[in-house]
Design a protein around this nucleic acid. Structure first.
Lengths: 206, 206
DNA sequence: GCAAGAAACTTAACAATATTCAGTTAGCGG
DNA sequence: CCGCTAACTGAATATTGTTAAGTTTCTTGC
């Protein structure tokens, strides 16, 4: 049955990306067979080549979709805390960690992909990365308006903050934390440690 | 030519791991063909199955060897700074970052492997991870003996420190830093930022 | 309405690569 | 010198990404 009945054109692309994400959640590695994706979508493997140049292109689309989801989730979970920068940072970070623990393989695909996926930094990919970071920069600036982190370069501190959270999540995802207790919520402990440090920079505390 | 001439028994295992590391340095992903490893070693692909249960086992050996190298390099590069905890931390971290930039693919294999490799936490793997972290714990304790980071839990802060450095390296390796200038040595900037923060906790400074 | 052409699949074929199997030979204990 | 095991080889198999060729459905100019 060649050409589809016109309506089924609910963009195979979209469905392929969605289904791939779902299949990734049931795997350790990203080597999900194209045939499996095709079956989930409801077509055959070669049909996907009409929508993606090759498997890498599909995985890059998944990679980008992951960033969109992460960004949206961070925004949604944190928007109630706009007024309280520290609570905002905390909520952002927890959403970030939650996302990683809920989608470990997708997270690995997003943050440790074979460079062939991220290499040609499509503007989208870069913009998405920036968007995620930008939320942190804003939060750091808000902290500074409250007298915290005086004299610090917001971008630099935001990047350090992000790096720490990402690093903690990344290490926690592979059990490389010191002991069981810390391992379990290593990421959250790191977040608290960072907030603790930021709080300690308040000039008017006693 | 079956059985080797007795002397060539220079442990294929060792050579296989070494050559795999070398082949990885010329690739983006870890999908180095077994046949390529075999050729570099000087045997055929199936011969490797006499030394490793399967390809994953070989990659895990490479993973572990990577940690041994990292640990040794950190030790070697930092031992001159035993007396100065901050300089020691700095040297450790720089060695760490250098290692990652010199061996990006190996670094990814070590820190973002498909869980199938690290899953069955062989005691070795875990011990190696602990060894690397232990160096940081000692350094943090040394800092505290100089009055820095008063009242902090060394393990917790060490883990946070490691997470930040690892996160920065990991992000830097994939160009996900904010802008060009920071991206280039993002990891080093993060290290400096961390040291700056630690320094700022000195009680007797003015 | 309709033929020609493009679009969007399908099935079949191909290529690379991990893994297994059945030999085959080198060294070693008797 | 005879078997026996260890350690490898070459060929065979299965999985999977990718390409090629064929087929049907829509569309569009007449």
């Amino acid at each position: 049955m060649p050409r589809p009945k016109k309506d089924a054109a609910l963009d195979i692309s979209r469905k392929a990306v969605e289904e791939t994400i779902r299949l990734l959640s049931k795997r350790d590695d990203f080597d999900v067979p194209l045939a499996a994706v095709a079956e989930a979508v409801g077509c055959t493997a070669p049909a996907l080549y009409g929508h993606f140049r090759n498997k890498d292109a599909l995985l890059r689309a998944v990679h980008d979709a992951g960033f969109r989801r992460l960004y949206e989730e961070k925004r949604a979970r944190a928007k109630h805390f706009r007024a309280e920068p520290l609570a905002y940072l905390r909520a952002c970070s927890h959403a970030y960690a939650q996302f990683a623990f809920d989608n470990p393989t997708l997270y690995r695909l997003m943050f440790s992909p074979p460079p062939s996926l991220a290499a040609d930094q499509g503007p989208l990919s870069t913009d998405l990365g920036r968007s995620v970071l930008e939320l942190v920069v804003k939060a750091i600036r808000a902290c500074q308006k409250q007298g915290l982190l005086p004299g610090a370069d917001p971008k630099r501190y935001a990047f350090t903050f992000w790096a720490a959270v990402h690093g903690a999540v990344s290490l926690a995802l592979q059990n490389r934390a010191p002991d069981e207790k810390i391992r379990q919520d290593a990421a959250l402990v790191v977040v608290d440690t960072l907030l603790e440090i930021i709080t300690a920079t308040a000039p008017d505390r006693r």
